[in-house]
């Protein structure tokens, strides 16, 4: 991935990537750490801009860390409503109708097959 390609991505996709990195980390991250965690060609200033925008929207909070800020996702009442929505969807066993889920339930034997495929990937 080149700088040019990542800088050209829509702002929404960049925000999603940064937000995902913050959630995955589980601890507050500085702009520099987010940049490293993303592992893409994004400029530090771009990451800072996105984090500031997310903060203004109230999706992330920040705390002082050294000379800059460390950012973390907001977990509040909206978080709870999102959880409720998830429970509601989970109740429906055949919600795949309108919602295409990333991975379906595995059949017996699928697990071994997948592990073998991943191992083959590691060998090459």
């Amino acid at each position: 991935m080149t700088d040019a390609k990542d800088e050209r991505r829509p702002a929404g996709e960049l925000e999603a990537a940064v937000m995902a990195a913050l959630w995955a980390a589980g601890v507050p991250l500085s702009a520099g750490h987010v940049q490293v965690e993303l592992g893409s060609g994004l400029a530090r200033t771009t990451v800072t801009t996105i984090l500031t925008r997310l903060h203004e929207k109230g999706v992330v909070s920040r705390e002082r860390q050294g000379r800059g800020y460390a950012y973390f996702p907001v977990q509040d009442a909206p978080g709870l409503t999102a959880r409720r929505m998830h429970t509601e969807l989970d109740r429906d066993t055949d919600r795949e109708t309108v919602l295409a889920r990333f991975v379906a339930q595995l059949n017996p034997g699928d697990e071994q097959l997948l592990r073998r495929l991943l191992e083959q990937e590691g060998d090459e």
Binding site: A16, A17, Q75, P78, R83, M85
Partner: peptide, 10 residues
């Protein structure tokens, strides 16, 4: 509030 099109569920 949206972070792009992503909605994260804890």
């Amino acid at each position: 509030p949206a972070a792009g099109d992503l909605c994260v569920v804890d």
